[in-house]
Design a protein around this nucleic acid. Structure first.
Length: 256
DNA sequence: ATGGTGGAAAGTCCA
């Protein structure tokens, strides 16, 4: 089983790329972020015809928006962090596929250090952790994937000196990421490639992709029983080179 | 010095 996460930066603008990717890679499950459309505009019919009959989506006007596409049934679908807190931003979609709880998220960017959106990012992460830790054990099969908007360590950034302490690389953000690892999640990419400077996002500006000025902020965290089945982690960086691309590449995990 | 690019949408906001 192959599971993909991809921030498409507008589903409507990226529909041709998505269909091409589905055709070329044929993953079992796809978690999408930044749909940037309302629920009524979600292209369910086209995606069903593309081989993904099982769909869950939670859109929002202009910003955010998440979806899960699957070849297999999606049990216990969930939209948002169901803790009674803020639901104004569509940032989480979850479902159980073939016994694995798959949680796809679009973490807040944070905008600027010290800003209100930055505080929202930190508290959103606290809520996400609480949601998972309060209802799961590390021995449960879980995939936590998405645009986490955190580059966890120096090898995850194009220039550790220039990126030191900036947004997406700040200690307060890295603490939030580390908390999931301390709880029991594994970062299978870093586990298999300890020193690789491989990125999942490149800025549109100043030839970011051409100069490989990128960050690894899209992740596929696995609990131990899923990691034990994980044969491959692929960052599909070639997709970032397609004409008029998303600024994020898809990331996939392959399970035996 | 507050830019550069891209997407929402029709003036800015967000990333």
């Amino acid at each position: 089983m192959q599971v993909v996460t991809w921030n498409v930066n507008s589903l409507r603008a990226r529909m041709a790329h998505l269909l091409r990717f589905l055709d070329e890679v044929s993953p079992d499950v796809v978690c999408l972020q930044e749909l940037k459309l309302t629920d009524d505009l979600f292209p369910a019919k086209v995606l069903r015809e593309a081989g993904y009959p099982h769909l869950v989506w939670w859109g929002q006007k202009n910003y955010n928006g998440v979806a899960m596409l699957s070849k297999h049934p999606i049990d216990a679908p969930q939209k948002g962090i169901d803790d009674g807190g803020d639901r104004s931003q569509s940032r989480l979609i979850a479902g159980t596929v073939n016994g694995i709880r798959i949680i796809g998220v679009y973490a807040p960017n944070g905008t600027r250090l010290g800003s209100e959106p930055f505080a929202f990012k930190l508290s959103w992460y606290d809520r996400l952790f609480e949601m998972i830790a309060s209802r799961h054990r590390p021995s449960d099969p879980i995939i936590l994937c998405g645009d986490l908007n955190i580059a966890p360590d120096d090898p995850d950034v194009w220039d550790p000196f220039r990126c030191d302490g900036i947004l997406l690389c700040h200690p307060l953000e890295r603490e939030r990421f580390q908390r999931f690892l301390d709880w029991g999640f594994v970062d299978p990419f870093r586990e298999r490639h300890p020193f690789a400077n491989t990125f999942s996002w490149w800025d549109y500006q100043q030839m970011g992709f051409q100069r490989n000025h990128g960050l690894r902020i899209d992740h596929t965290l696995l609990t131990a029983p899923v990691d034990a089945r994980c044969s491959e982690v692929t960052i599909h960086a070639n997709v970032r080179g397609w004409t008029s691309p998303s600024d994020h590449a898809p990331v996939s995990v392959t399970l035996s």
